[in-house]
Nucleic acid binder design. Structure first.
Lengths: 387, 387
DNA sequence: CGCAATTTTGTGTACGAACACAGTAATATC
DNA sequence: GATATTACTGTGTTCGTACACAAAATTGCG
């Protein structure tokens, strides 16, 4: 049996077994209502509707009410295209983030931001990156002060120093400049959005994986790079907490150690000494992106049977994953964070989207050698970084 | 030292250690050239430029050349918004996919498609879903025939029967109707795009994980649900191949078994019998989304120490992950596939994007209990732009 | 009540691309 | 050489929103 309408297709197929196998559903778009139509229904002019929609004032209570009543009935949505074409303003946006090196974590965030600018090239966006030294609170403060002094239309904030971030946010709020966070969320601030990974969940996942891939009853080590300067180690601590939480029933299985990054030879000695003293350790977690350093040490010394998990799909870590010296990295999708941060600003500034999903927990990706090649486009990484 | 321009920020901060820590880069958008400007430069009218741009003919060789010369110089990109607003055509799109149940694989693909329709609600899209029974080639053929008989503006194809898909593609090509594949790529067809996972890589990854989390020297089983009807098991076979490839050096470690789905009690007996006969099996791979059935059997019989990995984040599988009866699922991001499929059609029809990345390998996600809450099937950028 | 000041409202134009249509130039036909 | 035919080109209107500006209505105040 077969029916046809103007377009909807009806396929009802009776197969040899007597059952009906086909089914058709058309999702026809409800026709969007236009401002003109709303004006007509409310008995006012389009100009008045526009004033109500954009809260531009100079509307009598009676008119406003009439418009709002119609608005409530029809649930109006802006036409993005017409809106964007009319709004021909130029937007200056500042991204204040730690120095972004291509192939490393903040480099990926930057790339996501840049991609969004490119993607929305029909909107005049000027994006200024104000980099600071993430290990130096002094450089962070100077950078942030300067941003507040300018008058950007919006700010993207990659904040490693909580106190400095709070200070800047207060200034921005006083000036009604919207801002979003990438890579963190900071209490007592009011961003229009924030994008970050739940760090303790990352640590928990890391523990679960190491436990699963190591022989039963193994011991595990958390290896952290020694602090450089007054580095804010908030993320690392949260991850460690999650990691230990997984082993809450047997805390003696988790040891912690540090290794020097500034002095690689000393770092190597520290790692080797630790492993010699703790032969039951079968898994190592590095709570930041420096896992590749440990991986290299393990590889060069032919140390087998100790599995390593680190964070972030940086160029160095990817290399280790590929050569097998690292078992997995947990991925925070930095590029996606950057992209979505810029998107949410565009949504706010242009499309007046003011009821934002305030915070978004990013997914936590598990990247091992076998699914690494397929992460490429997903992560929007540079091709040359990957095999 | 501190300089200011109209907007660019210069922060050069000399820290206490004498090093410069701040750095500023502004990415200023090159101003887009308009059709009017091109017309002026080429000494013709905007209408003529438009005719050249859209190959609408009726342009003298001299004019065409003049316009093309300017075009080559300035690399014009037309304004998406103005374009979309002018093109006020209504598009009829058909998605021919297997019956899509919410919470299952094809249901997620459908959801991605629907989300794209919603996302691009400023474009008049009517999407018709033509479902067929993926286990019945007869229903597939009828459904496909009917599609070809209509004249949709584009087609999304979820093809489980290769021969039928080829036949439909030929018809569509003859009518110059663009089409995209989701969940598969089929040789000897010319889709404008295709989205699918590399199935053998999935199988390989599955093997790697099972091997890693099971005791050394364990044996593994591939459990597949018995075929229903003339089900196309192409994906399952490819996964199995990848799985066995991982154990190429020790093929005796991999056993294969089947279990009945239509008769659950019989299926259960088969599974239990197999496990009793193969006590060294410490890991089970189910090469489709039916892993939850095995998980339930293991759970109900209190069978410990056998780890299970299945495919697809279906509602059933997610439940098992949460209660711990399944160790992981590999995820193909079906929602993303559907979304991007529709996106590529919109890009083709509206934005004249004709140089497509013909095929896109989807990422292969690893979902375990610890990252499940943060796992979003729908990781696609634009999703967040609209409510 | 009258006139100015202010608030409210409607109209018109711009945005940039697309395309219909009218208008002009070039060629064909008798 | 006049007219019909075709080939080409420019103008003008459209899409839906935003906002400037003018027009109308309301208010204030002597």
């Amino acid at each position: 049996m077969l029916k046809r309408e103007k377009f909807a297709i009806f396929v009802e197929v009776t197969g040899p077994d007597g059952n009906v196998h086909g089914d058709i559903r058309t999702v026809r778009m409800a026709k969007q209502i236009k401002i003109k139509e709303i004006a007509a229904r409310a008995g006012v002019s389009p100009g008045t509707v526009d004033r109500v929609l954009h809260n531009r004032g100079n509307v009598s209570a009676a008119s406003r009410e009439a418009v709002e009543r119609v608005l409530a009935e029809v649930k109006y949505r802006f036409n993005i295209h017409a809106s964007a074409i009319s709004l021909r303003k130029e937007y200056n946006i500042v991204a204040a983030i730690p120095t972004a090196v291509t192939g490393e974590y903040w480099g990926s965030i930057r790339k996501g931001i840049e991609r969004a600018v490119e993607e929305y090239s029909d909107i005049r966006l000027n994006c200024t990156f104000a980099y600071y030294n993430q290990f130096d609170i002094y450089s962070c403060r100077s950078s942030f002060d300067e941003i507040a002094a300018q008058n950007p239309d919006a700010v993207i904030l990659g904040a490693t120093f909580v106190s400095e971030a709070r200070r800047l946010c207060e200034l921005l709020e006083a000036r009604r400049i919207p801002y979003v966070f990438v890579d963190s969320r900071i209490e007592q601030t009011r961003p229009i959005a924030s994008f970050a990974t739940e760090q303790s969940a990352c640590g928990h996942l890391c523990a679960k994986l190491l436990d699963a891939i190591a022989p039963p009853g193994s011991a595990f080590a958390i290896f952290n790079s020694k602090r450089i300067g007054n580095e804010n180690a908030y993320n690392m601590l949260a991850r460690e907490e999650g990691f230990r939480d997984f082993f809450a029933g047997a805390p003696e299985r988790v040891t912690k150690s540090e290794f020097s990054v500034l002095d690689p030879e000393e770092g190597e000695r520290e790692v080797l000494r630790f492993l010699a003293e703790n032969p039951r350790v079968r898994g190592i977690a590095v709570m930041n992106s420096r896992g590749h350093i440990i991986a290299d040490i393990l590889r060069r010394h032919g140390i087998q049977g100790v599995r390593l998990i680190s964070f972030d799909t940086t160029a160095n870590n990817i290399k280790c994953i590929n050569e097998g010296s690292m078992w997995a990295v947990l991925c925070q999708y930095p590029e996606m964070q950057g992209f979505q941060a810029m998107q949410s600003i565009i949504g706010w500034l242009l499309y007046k989207r003011t009821e934002p999903a305030a915070h978004r927990d990013m997914p936590i990706g598990i990247v091992v050698r076998e699914n690494l090649p397929y992460h490429r486009e997903f992560l929007l990484q540079e091709a040359e970084l990957l095999p």
